[in-house]
């Protein structure tokens, strides 16, 4: 299931996070995309790498005293994108598919 809609955030960092999450969520449902298993695994991996930097940046802006609103909006975006990564990974290992050998 794709993530639900977000309220549009107002602070700049939250807007950046929102923009990227919206762009990713507008990709057609993963199920409809014909991709090789390796491509799917790589896509989830790249998404998780970007999310790792985003989570670290979130902690940094939290330490810099960013507003609660910005922090919550970015947290929500991270959660949604993490769910998307999990969905891609589930698709990669769903019944009928052979898991990648790693």
């Amino acid at each position: 299931m794709l993530p639900s809609r977000l309220a549009t955030p107002t602070s700049p960092p939250a807007q950046v996070a929102y923009y990227f999450s919206r762009r990713l969520c507008h990709v057609p449902p993963v199920r409809m995309i014909r991709m090789s298993q390796r491509t799917l695994a790589s896509l989830a991996h790249q998404l998780r790498n970007a999310l790792a930097a985003m989570a670290n940046n979130l902690e940094l802006i939290r330490l810099n005293g960013a507003s609660e609103e910005s922090i919550k909006a970015i947290e929500k975006s991270i959660l949604e994108l993490r769910e998307l990564a999990e969905e891609i990974e589930r698709e990669n290992t769903s019944p009928g598919r052979v898991p990648l050998p790693f």
């Binding site: 790498n49 970007a50 790792a52 930097a53 670290n56 940046n57 940094l60 330490l63």
Partner: peptide
Amino acid sequence: DHRDGADTLDMLLRL
């Protein structure tokens, strides 16, 4: 090898 992730974690740990 993902520089953004490494650099941001580095900053956090230094802090």
